[in-house]
Simulated scan of single mutants.
Amino acid sequence: MRIILTYGTFDLFHVGHIRLLKRLSELGDKLIVGVSTDEFNLKKGKKSFFSYAERAEIVQSCRYVDQVIPERDWEQKRNDILECNVDVFAMGDDWVGTFDSLKDICDVVYLERTENISTTDIKSKLAKINKSELDKIELHLHDLIDIVKILSDN
């Protein structure tokens, strides 16, 4: 049995995640996914929209994933590879070279990310939409204040 291991935050689960997990699952017989805990994300300076439990449940529900484990720190990868008898450690190509030190215990593969989609981009677009909507509301509030002033003067 060929076992594949990857890690990620998997916040705002999207088609890029699905495509990555599908390609990872095609590399072997079993795909294990380490999902970053909320505490680990804080150490990395990240804040997820969904809690660890919710993200782990979402990832586990993906048909390409066989097992989900918590990712608690950077150092656990070597231990997880050994404990789970991992054959291939795989990450997105934005991590190229970062985990080459694990090549002494398994194959290390970096897969291309899905173009034009990332959680960071989604969050950025949502923030702009929210800012735009808030600006519109603020304009309407100023209009209402002006109307109230006019009415109270009469």
Rank of each mutant, 00 (worst) to 15 (best):
K44M: 14
P70S: 04
A56D: 06
L42H: 13
K30W: 10
K46D: 01
N41K: 11
D29F: 05
V35E: 06
A53Q: 15
D66Q: 03
G28Y: 00
W74D: 13
K46I: 14
D66H: 09
K46M: 10
D73W: 07
V33E: 04
S36H: 12
S25A: 02
R19G: 09
I18E: 10
L21K: 06
I18N: 09
R19W: 09
T37A: 10
S61V: 01
K30I: 01
P70I: 03
Y64C: 05
S36Q: 13
I69Q: 05
R72D: 12
E54K: 14
V59I: 06
K47M: 14
A53V: 15
E26H: 04
K22I: 07
K77M: 08
L21H: 03
A53C: 08
F40H: 11
I18K: 10
D38K: 03
K47L: 13
N41L: 15
W74T: 15
V59W: 03
D73S: 15
S61G: 04
K77E: 01
I69F: 00
R19L: 05
G45L: 03
V65M: 04
E54I: 15
T37F: 12
G28P: 01
K43R: 14
Q67V: 11
S61D: 03
F50H: 13
V35S: 08
Y52R: 11
G34Y: 02
R23G: 02
Q76G: 06
V59E: 00
F50P: 09
L27A: 06
F49M: 14
R19F: 00
K77F: 06
S48M: 12
L24Q: 05
E57T: 13
L27H: 04
W74M: 13
Q60D: 09
I58H: 07
R63A: 05
K46R: 15
R23M: 01
L31M: 03
K22C: 06
V68N: 05
R19Q: 01
F40N: 12
G45K: 03
K43C: 09
K43L: 15
K77G: 07
A53W: 00
K77L: 01
P70N: 08
G28K: 01
F49I: 15
F49H: 08
E57M: 11
D38S: 12
P70V: 07
K47S: 14
K47W: 10
S61T: 06
L20F: 15
K30V: 03
E75C: 02
I32N: 00
V33A: 06
E54D: 15
I69M: 07
R72N: 14
D38V: 04
S48K: 08
D66W: 04
E71D: 11
E57I: 00
E75D: 12
G45M: 08
